[in-house]
Design a protein around this nucleic acid. Sequence first.
DNA 1: ACCGCAGGTTAGCGCTTGCTTACAATGGGG
DNA 2: CCCCATTGTAAGCAAGCGCTAACCTGCGGT
Lengths: 210, 210
Amino acid sequence: MTMSLSAELWPDVQPETARRLMLAGVEAFAKRGYHATTTRDIAGAAGMSPAALYVHFPSKAALLFAISRYGHEQTLALVENVVAKESDPVERIRLIVEDFVAWHARRHTVARVVQYELQALPEKEFEVVAELRRRIERIVRDVITAGAEAGVFTVSDAHISARAVLSLGVDVARWYTERARQTPTALGKEYGGLVLRMLGAAQPETPVTN
Amino acid sequence: MTMSLSAELWPDVQPETARRLMLAGVEAFAKRGYHATTTRDIAGAAGMSPAALYVHFPSKAALLFAISRYGHEQTLALVENVVAKESDPVERIRLIVEDFVAWHARRHTVARVVQYELQALPEKEFEVVAELRRRIERIVRDVITAGAEAGVFTVSDAHISARAVLSLGVDVARWYTERARQTPTALGKEYGGLVLRMLGAAQPETPVTN
DNA sequence: ACCGCAGGTTAGCGCTTGCTTACAATGGGG
DNA sequence: CCCCATTGTAAGCAAGCGCTAACCTGCGGT
């Protein structure tokens, strides 16, 4: 049972035409940036007339917000999921990084918009996603703090460490392309190992897993 | 002997008015993005009429290119400097990261334009800075490879490791602000320690300095 | 058979954009 | 003393922008 990419990305957006517009928007925003993209570009790429966009979204900014919000909710869910399923700080960080990095690689087009087109959001909409971002950062920081207190991590500042961990994941969206030599999953595992060493976690026999 | 920020950033650009335009451009591009910035914004911020920009730059894109090129040349020079002065791979990486991170923090406004407004450059101009970027990445990768062959680093893929090291530095430009709790220099030292652990370098007595 | 509405189109409005043209002021060299 | 290069301005053009008004069309419900 294959499904369209847009249905996979935004399963609960109806109708399918709205999803096609979001997909066209994501691709254009990721490649050229929000402000360099015209509503005609988006509608044209979705195979529709310029005015069709306004049947489904009140403005170009609202389309960006829909994309940005869904993306942030997905990454937050990812992180929350790990914390819910696993309690060991080391494994929590490993899995968070694996999933976070893999998502930013597999969904690098969406991720590029999510991470780098924030500033284009109107103030109110920006505040909504900013709150989601704070929750993500807080979770990572708390896991690191817990690990440090348990003695399994060696860090001088959980704030800075959390930033560094997220930086590694976020920046993947900037450089990853389909032609990369590693699959998203493999890259996630690799980065998981790098991060654990960075946090001074006790090491398994093979320092970096393939 | 104090000097204006613009003279400090671009000492060999003449006349001073051109530098003021570059400074206004940097600030606007960093805050709103290239495409959301108008030539009227830039000229206005520099205290001039809209047409004044075209006395010193043939186009808005040429202004961006001047900013981007200077910035890339500065970071490349930084990295080349370390390699010229130091030969031990561990110290090379430590100093590269310290300087690279400190630059991205201290000059975060310029760095934001350098790292995130690339796509707005016309193709020819983009190719010029892309070549500078490749040289930076190559140097870092070569140092890591040398360290791995000397047995002082433990990495499974120098390509990925170099990307990760640069990611940490680049991403600083995205989140650093003047209100950050660490000075650029302190942040650089902190990140130097994190990176050395990430690369599996043999550790001094205190794993993370400061 | 008819309605109403969701979802689409064509045409175009009012405004802003990057950039150009024509012209003014200033000041150092012959 | 004049000349002209340099550095700036005022005014405005052609194109493209986000968005809207007015209208068309097919279809499920009664």
